[in-house]
Amino acid sequence: MTIKERREREKEEMRELILSAANDIITAEGFDKLSIRKIAKKIEYSPSIIYHYFNDKEEILNNVMQRGYKKIVTAVSLTKVKGDSPEERLVEMTKNYIKAALDMPEEFIAAQLNQSEIALKHTSSLFKGASKEKPALAALYNCLKEIYKDKKVDANTVELTAQMIAVSTLGLIIKLIIEKDIGDKQRQKLIEYFSEEIVLRIVNEKGII
């Protein structure tokens, strides 16, 4: 390994250490409580060292949010590789999204319930045109478009349907995270019923398909 390669690896390791510490603080205390000083204390370095790797707290927050959102997008996008019908992919997509969120409950809650401008930059999905800007919503939108391909459904209705499914799924996830003691069997039943029945009912509303 060359000196340059070693330095790059050390740089990435330090960035990872900083982001991991920031994520731990956010999970435990919330976005608003994060500070450069707290990160420095947690990793046992001086605050000035952190500024060597990140411009400011906002850049750290953006990186933390991007990492979390990437997990969700990856979980949803993986559904594309399956050769099922679009309805089956929609069901699988919903299950994958829920599983990915439940695998990082504290991080998910901290991000989704935060109203800061930085958090909303990544989590907002109800504005008009969101399906063109948000990868996870875009995957859902495109699946719905395929379901509706032989129906007279305009793009705005497709997007609204995608948004309603996303919001409904978010509500279930939050309740599953909060109500921790319902048992694995009941949790799985709820996820399956929601994904296989409720989501398709939203799609089928008013006899669209």
Rank of each mutant, 00 (worst) to 15 (best):
T2P: 08
M1A: 11
A162C: 09
K145H: 03
L190V: 14
I118S: 10
E12C: 03
K33G: 08
V64L: 10
Y141L: 01
V153H: 02
L113W: 03
A111M: 12
K80W: 09
I174K: 13
R9G: 06
L140Y: 07
S20Y: 09
Y51C: 03
L137M: 02
E87H: 09
L113V: 07
L126R: 00
S35K: 05
K41I: 12
Y193C: 12
K134W: 02
M93W: 01
S48D: 04
L140R: 05
S131A: 14
G171I: 02
S195G: 09
E58R: 08
R37K: 13
T2I: 09
E16Y: 11
N23H: 08
G129W: 05
R37M: 08
A162H: 04
A139F: 14
I208M: 11
R37W: 12
D56A: 01
V64S: 04
S195A: 15
E197Y: 09
P47V: 09
L160V: 01
S168C: 11
I177E: 13
S116K: 10
Y97I: 00
N156P: 00
V91D: 03
R89Y: 04
P105Y: 06
R15K: 15
K70A: 15
R15W: 04
I43M: 00
I173N: 09
D181H: 13
A119R: 13
V158A: 02
V73I: 15
N55P: 01
Q112V: 12
A28N: 09
D150R: 10
Y69A: 15
E59C: 01
V76R: 04
S85E: 14
V158I: 15
E205P: 00
K42R: 13
E87Q: 14
A40K: 07
D84N: 15
L120S: 07
L190F: 15
Y141N: 07
L172M: 13
